[in-house]
Design a binder for these strands. Structure first.
Lengths: 260, 260
DNA sequence: CGGGACTTTGAGCAAATTCAACCATTGTGG
DNA sequence: CCACAATGGTTGAATTTGCTCAAAGTCCCG
């Protein structure tokens, strides 16, 4: 895990910006989608003063369950998995976090879960203490945080419904459908799905073994619902069919985090 | 579902208080444990002005998923279950809420889940709009809400670990152990467990069928971990053994909601 | 080109569900 | 006050879904 002074490395340069070099937050790609968006114009400098960009390589650990919860992160680019483990090694991945998602948000002394990078990930790191001070100062920011955690709670409930009630086929179909919705929301092609995580991650997220995930996917391929280019890249051939198989509720708001 | 003017009915009178009759919030039994505790002295009158006490009979519905989210509730006494359903009737109970817990906290237009009373329940109801105005005025209240939803998120993650990874025996043992911890926290005997919900509720909470819940409990009885007085009242005979069977993590903070 | 990590596929197995019958408790009407 | 229907809970046997164990296949990277 490497730390970067803002505006120095290759990865940094991959992030589009137009503002002054000494205030990268002002031009951050994810600013409007995250808590940061609550601060406007000149206020954003306050955030920038406590922000540190951090790069985490694929498979590296950001923090472990039980570590002192000193920092809060925002994913700038890449993918993070958060998970809890049982003493014997069983693992439940409780979420995959992407661009603009927050990691480590917990008003407790210690993290209640671990976080690893799925792929190379660039994050913005804030000391908890400093961020809390800003919250005192800017109630708009606090309101936004409340809205974010309320959305997270809603998708946690969706995930409980999936884990507790859905069959293997429904679980996998729901997972793929959700990835498609996320791509759509980001303005990408919702039919081309790139899976940055491996089968064991998908299994531990859905409460299934890797074998069941694999078998279910080939079954979907044989049924013409999807087709794969490689094991981590595929095409959704029948979105409606996938939603049907997944018993997905399309009636209203998307469960992928929307910032209100 | 009946509404009560504060300080009128039998149930109301069952709540201990000492303050003036026209300001029941000031003397509410759960005040210090809930958001309400953020307001002190004279401020509490503001909350009282928008609060309405509501009584919901066992089995009655408080609201349904998709209803306009006009109100937020605090459980004064009794038990509420919140749940989501699939089109074919499968149901996942995502939580049981007890004294001082909040129900319906969602910064969205519509409730993302349904809520039914498990037993006769007394609640305090606030219009969402009015409560949000108070939040603007009293940041301390907003901070408290943030802390509450952060705790809820943590226990949602515990529940995902349970649903996705634990065996039937572990699930049931964890459930009983958690009830015991809750009783302890409330100052009650942690070995006497009263189950206000029926087997189908427990099953839908743990992602198991009623038969499996029942079989697992009799197995626990035969192993000497518990003993029952009736089907809804029993005694924990071997707390350590129960925690062991449940693969419960006792290392730090309780996952039952603690208000920070 | 070789080796390691990840994925797929297959066969047998086991945990939990389904289906079915029976038991216990409660409340109601004759 | 008892009969009996209704609701909820327990127990048993058969079935099924998803898991375990095992082997082979694929991809990537040095």
């Amino acid at each position: 895990m490497t730390e970067l002074k803002p505006g120095v490395t290759d990865l940094m340069d991959a992030i589009p910006r137009s503002g002054p070099l000494d205030n990268p937050c002002a031009a951050c790609a994810v600013r409007d989608m995250s808590v940061c968006g609550a601060l406007k114009g000149n206020e954003i400098g306050r955030l920038n003063a406590i922000a540190v960009r951090t790069n985490v390589g694929a498979g590296e650990t950001l923090f472990l369950e039980g570590d002192a919860a000193d920092h809060i992160y925002v994913v700038i680019d890449g993918c993070i998995k958060i998970y809890k483990m049982l003493p014997d090694g069983r693992r439940q991945i409780t979420g995959f976090l992407y661009q603009s998602d927050m990691v480590g948000l917990a008003f407790r002394q210690r993290y209640a879960f671990s976080a690893d990078a799925v792929s190379n990930t660039l994050l913005c790191r804030f000391p908890r203490e400093g961020l809390e001070k800003l919250l005192d100062e800017f109630p708009e920011m606090e309101r936004r945080l409340l809205s974010i955690s309320s959305n997270e709670l809603a998708s946690a409930q969706d995930q409980m419904l999936l884990l507790g009630q859905k069959t293997a086929a429904e679980k996998v179909a729901t997972f793929l459908w959700l990835l498609s919705r996320r791509a759509e929301l980001k303005g990408a092609d919702p039919h081309k799905i790139l899976l940055p995580m491996m089968r064991s991650d998908i299994g531990d997220y859905l409460g299934l073994t890797i074998e069941t995930v694999s078998r279910t996917m080939t079954q979907f391929r044989k049924r013409g619902l999807i087709s794969f280019t490689s094991s981590s890249l595929f095409q959704i051939e029948d979105p409606a069919g996938l939603a049907e198989v997944g018993s997905v509720d399309e009636s209203w708001e998307a469960s992928v985090a929307l910032i209100g």
